[in-house]
């Protein structure tokens, strides 16, 4: 009979990942590289938003993109067409990225010398909210066809984000989307969140968002 005994661990399940994420954030700070974790549902227009963001900023800073998907590399091809450095990460069936996978992605991308790296997380509003990737800022996209009640359904995701982009506002007329109601619901969960209504397709509102992003890069590099 083996001598089993009770050994206390008393560790939160996310503690390990949180520690790795903090280390990665400190490393990126040293390198003056602002890492943005971009999250949303599938089909909200993440890749289109990225393309218009890159086109607005690529002449003034060095940008890298990490595309995380369970499979395929269609998004990486779209981004590569903008001339930006991009790497496709496959999560192998996992529904989110953690800090360790993000770190490996940055190494694969060759992130040295970059001012801004955008991580396009797996399209999912549940799991990515639980795992700190090591990003300096969390940004999420909510698109008009998804409905203004999304914040009520996925409160954690809206609580952890610094910025909310409400995309596809050009389609507002076709859907019962109440911009004011959506903003109120989000602010109730997270009073500090910045909300930018945009249309990645027409370019409407994109400048306010890229101005914020430009400021965030500057703050990260100078503070």
């Amino acid at each position: 009979m083996k001598n089993f005994k009770i050994l206390e661990i008393k560790e939160g399940i996310f503690d390990n990942n949180n520690k790795e994420a903090d280390l990665l954030r400190a490393e990126l700070k040293q390198q003056n590289n602002l890492l943005i974790n971009l999250m949303s549902s599938p089909g909200s227009g993440k890749t289109t938003t990225l393309v218009s963001t890159i086109n607005a900023l690529k002449d003034e800073m060095k940008i890298g993109v990490m595309e995380a998907d369970i499979d395929s590399d269609v998004d990486a091809h779209t981004i590569a067409n903008t001339g930006t450095k991009v790497i496709q990460l496959h999560t192998g069936g996992m529904c989110h990225l953690d800090a360790e996978m993000t770190k490996q992605g940055l190494e694969g991308l060759g992130s040295e010398g970059l001012d801004l790296t955008i991580l396009e997380n797996v399209g999912n509003l549940v799991c990515p909210a639980e795992f700190d990737t090591g990003a300096a800022k969390n940004v999420m996209i909510l698109s008009v066809p998804e409905g203004d009640d999304k914040p009520l359904k996925y409160p954690l995701m809206f609580s952890i984000c610094d910025v909310l982009l409400i995309n596809k506002i050009d389609a507002m007329g076709f859907f019962d989307f109440d911009l004011e109601a959506a903003t109120t619901r989000v602010k109730k969960l997270n009073p500090n969140i910045k909300v930018f209504p945009i249309s990645a397709k027409t370019g409407e509102g994109v400048e306010a968002w890229t101005n914020w992003l430009r400021g965030a890069v500057k703050d990260w590099q100078e503070s």
Binding site: I13, N16, M94, D98, E130
Partner: peptide, 28 residues
Amino acid sequence: MHELGVVFEVIKTVKNFVDKNDLTKVDT
């Protein structure tokens, strides 16, 4: 599934603990 990734995280933490404390078998 949301819980699956989390359970993998549990196993990872326990594995670290096992290695650090030179344990041979985890019953529960």
